[in-house]
Computed example of a mutant assay.
Amino acid sequence: MSAALEAGDKILNSALRVAAVVLVLGMLTVVCGSVALRALGTVVFGADELTRLLLTWTVAVGVVLGAREGGHLAIEAVTDRLTGWTRRSVLGLGAIVSIGFLLILTWTGLQYAIAGFTRGAPTPSLGISTGWAALSWPVCGFLTMLYVLRDLVAGVTVGPPDPPDDAEVSGLV
């Protein structure tokens, strides 16, 4: 990876990590504050909507961070038994299918976000545009797609990492 790309990746990674912490702390504050105040007989106006918005963005940021670290949901029972060209091909095909899905997610999310900002009704309690929640989809899809592309290129040029041996899987190493 070039120096400029590595610097950009470090900046993006730092921004995503800060955003994740801020989002989780914000969600925790809103939920705990709402519960505590409700116990005292006061209902916090808009807390549910704000919590849902923060949760949506927390998940989106978490997905991107997971993709950056190479973490993803996968059933590796088959791919861990493959080696060489076959393993590289199957993982490459999976990455290509993922990129197709992420393109659809990005495009569709962008359409929803634009619609939410331009003609969507504001949320009932907070009165903010529904586009803010929908914007998490294209941001998540696009950034995740960049990391999947990075891994695809690395897998083609270097090859994917070898599957773990039984000792690594059982936690003995």
Rank of each mutant, 00 (worst) to 15 (best):
Y147A: 02
I75F: 15
M27T: 02
S89A: 14
C140F: 07
G109L: 00
R68M: 12
A47I: 10
G171E: 06
L152F: 06
A77Y: 13
V30M: 07
L37G: 05
G62Q: 04
W137L: 13
W85D: 14
Q111R: 12
R38V: 09
G155R: 07
T144A: 13
L105M: 12
V24T: 14
D48S: 11
G127T: 02
G8H: 10
G84M: 11
G66D: 04
R68I: 08
G131D: 05
S170E: 15
G120K: 05
T144H: 01
L12C: 06
L152W: 02
L149H: 01
L5Q: 12
T118M: 14
V63P: 02
G71L: 14
S89N: 09
L135M: 12
I75V: 15
T108V: 11
L37P: 01
L146H: 01
G71I: 14
D162K: 12
T123I: 07
A154L: 11
A60I: 02
H72L: 13
M145A: 15
L152V: 00
G171L: 08
V158S: 14
T58K: 06
E76C: 15
L12E: 04
V59T: 07
R17Y: 03
G71E: 11
M145W: 09
L25T: 10
L50D: 07
G41H: 08
R81D: 07
A95T: 03
P164L: 03
V148I: 13
L53F: 12
P161L: 09
E49Q: 12
L146K: 01
A20D: 00
L93V: 12
